[in-house]
Structures are given as structure tokens and as C-alpha cells.
Design a protein around this nucleic acid. Structure first.
Length: 293
DNA sequence: CGCAATACCTGGGTGC
DNA sequence: TGCACCCAGGTATTGC
């Protein structure tokens, strides 16, 4: 499901009920998500005050008063929702209407702010892990991540440098979280279209022989900034699974120019091309052959 | 080494 | 209706 804009939308939804509140009860309803929960997972969360809720790439990071950090990743199908606890339930129990959509409720938090937070993830590609804040730089899940695409360090020069010598496609390079951290299939397709660059272009063509960024690299960075910022403003894109923590849909999918638009007309002014789809490294690529070069 | 393919999961849609 | 198959917003691992 979620790429950077969706994760940021979730972060903004959880922040008001998590920050400054205590995790009164934590519950993992199955032994694992992508990997097994740590044996002390619940113990390290329960009773802790969340001092801040941040984001790094597609990871949510809840700072705890203990000095631990709770890392959360939504995988392909993870979502959080915030619900009102049932006042008639026992203090440590979560009572709420069950249905098909609650089958995959795997992790629950009761916050002292008066909210229950439910993590749902049908495919279980998501994960949660508690680590010590002073060991963040040694954390394997975070160690290899490249720059934040909306951060100050990420610019055309940096992108060109990290693509130097890469013989893979530009599409594959942008999906590589070591190159830039937070893009996924949707926003890579959209950023390439908005910068009029072909997904098949060799990644190394973003820099000159001298190692300077090309105009292509500058255009691409501009497009990445624009599409991510616009998508965050729209509350992300809702195709199948993404919901805001309130259950509402994001609406950036209405602004897609290529993603999921196979056979439709290109939205580039005066282009008139037809959006095509093909498979690149096992993922669908959507693009306009006429205006993306 | 870089890169492509594969595996991990469930569910929805399609075509027979 | 059932079934086989394909597809899905991610990422770690495998193998060439």
C-alpha cells in the first residue's frame, strides 16, 4: 500500500492521539508479521509515554520515554485506524464490532488519550520492532536507507551521484531505497511522467561524464518534490487498502497522470499519447511513450 | 560486484 | 458455483 505520502498521512493521523499519551495496553494477536515479534515487544511498550511520532522513509517511529523507539512499517497492505474504546469493556480488553475487515487486526494499543489504535495488515508484509534510540544507527532496517526525498540533502547533484555508473533503469534506481528513501511504484511512475523521462532510461544518464547533474536530474528532483507534496496535501492515494486513520480515503489517485491509466489519454498538454503499461523488474510501469524520453 | 528474479502473504478480479 | 490464474502500493534474500 503505502509510500511516503500515505505513511506521512498516517503519521499525522496518529500524532494527536499518540504524542504525549501513554500506551496503557499493548497487544499482539499473532506471533509474527513479516518476522516474529520480539519476546519483550509488549513489555517494552506497555506503560510507556510516547514523546514523539516521526517518520523516516516509509517507517513510522514512535519515541518512548524509556529511550526505546517503536519502528512500524505498513508493508503492502497495512493500515491504522483510531477508534473509541468501549467503556463497558474490561480495562485490558478491546471490544469493538468484528467483521470481515477486522480479521487481520494484528496489533492494538490502548492510549491514555482515550483512543484505541488498531493495526490491520492482511498480507503481513508490515513489521514492528522496538529498538534502543542510542542503537538507531546500527538498526539493519534503517541502516541502508538513502536520503529523504523531501529533505534538504536530496538534490539533483546527490541523485546524479548515487546513480553514477548504474546500468539499471531509472525506474529501478528510483525504487531502490538506498538511492532515495520513500518512493514506491506509484510515485516513481508519476514523477517520471511529470519530468518527461522514460522509465527505461539508463540511470547513469542523470549525470555527465564529469559527474555533474544533467537537466534531466534537476527536472526529476523537481517532479519528485511536487508529486510528493501534492500527494501529502491530498491525504495520499487510496487504491485498495490505504485509509486515513479515521477510515476516510485519500484522494490523490484522482490526480494520477499515468498510474493505473493504461489505455487512457496522456494528460500532458498537447501530447495526445496513450498511456501504456509494461513489466519492469516484476512491477507494472505506466508511462507515455510519446512525451517521456 | 550489480542486477534480476524470487519469496514472503492474502484477497480481489477475471476468464473458463 | 468453482477453480485456476493473475494482479496488487514493499523489501530481504538468492543466484547469476
Amino acid at each position: 500500500m503505502p509510500e511516503l505520502p500515505e505513511v506521512e498521512t498516517v503519521r499525522r493521523g496518529l500524532q494527536p492521539v499518540m504524542e504525549g499519551a501513554k500506551i496503557v495496553v499493548a497487544e499482539a494477536r499473532r506471533p509474527d508479521l513479516r518476522f516474529p515479534f520480539q519476546p519483550d515487544f509488549v513489555a517494552r511498550l506497555q506503560g510507556q509515554v510516547v514523546t514523539g511520532l516521526g517518520r523516516r522513509a516509509k517507517y513510522l517511529m514512535a519515541d518512548l520515554a524509556s529511550g526505546d523507539v517503536l519502528l512500524m512499517h505498513l508493508g503492502m497492505s497495512g493500515s491504522f485506524r483510531v477508534i473509541k474504546p468501549d467503556n463497558d469493556a474490561a480495562p485490558g480488553e478491546f471490544h469493538y464490532p468484528r467483521g470481515k475487515d477486522t480479521t487481520h487486526d494484528h496489533v492494538l494499543f490502548r492510549m491514555s488519550s482515550g483512543a484505541d489504535i488498531v493495526f490491520n495488515d492482511p498480507r503481513r508484509f508490515g513489521c514492528m520492532k522496538v529498538i534502543a534510540r542510542n542503537a538507531l544507527e546500527d538498526e539493519p532496517l534503517l541502516r541502508g536507507l538513502g536520503p529523504e526525498p523531501l529533505g534538504n540533502e536530496f538534490d539533483a547533484a546527490m541523485l546524479a551521484r548515487s546513480c553514477e555508473g548504474k546500468t539499471t533503469s531509472l525506474k529501478a534506481a528510483l525504487l531502490d531505497q538506498r538511492v532515495v528513501a520513500g518512493l514506491g511504484n506509484i510515485y516513481v511512475c508519476e514523477a517520471l511522467h511529470r519530468s518527461h523521462l522514460s522509465p527505461r532510461r539508463i540511470a547513469a544518464t542523470l549525470s555527465t561524464r564529469k559527474g555533474e547533474p544533467t537537466d534531466h536530474a534537476k527536472r526529476l528532483v523537481g517532479a519528485i518534490h511536487t508529486v510528493l507534496n501534492d500527494a501529502i496535501k491530498a491525504g495520499g492515494s487510496s487504491l485498495r487498502d490505504h485509509r486515513r486513520t479515521t477510515g476516510e480515503l485519500g484522494y490523490f489517485q484522482h490526480s494520477f497522470k499515468v498510474y493505473d491509466r493504461e489505455g487512457e489519454t496522456c494528460k500532458t498538454p498537447a501530447c495526445g499519447g496513450t498511456i501504456k503499461r509494461f513489466n519492469q523488474n516484476g512491477r507494472s510501469t505506466f508511462w507515455c511513450r510519446k512525451c517521456q524520453k
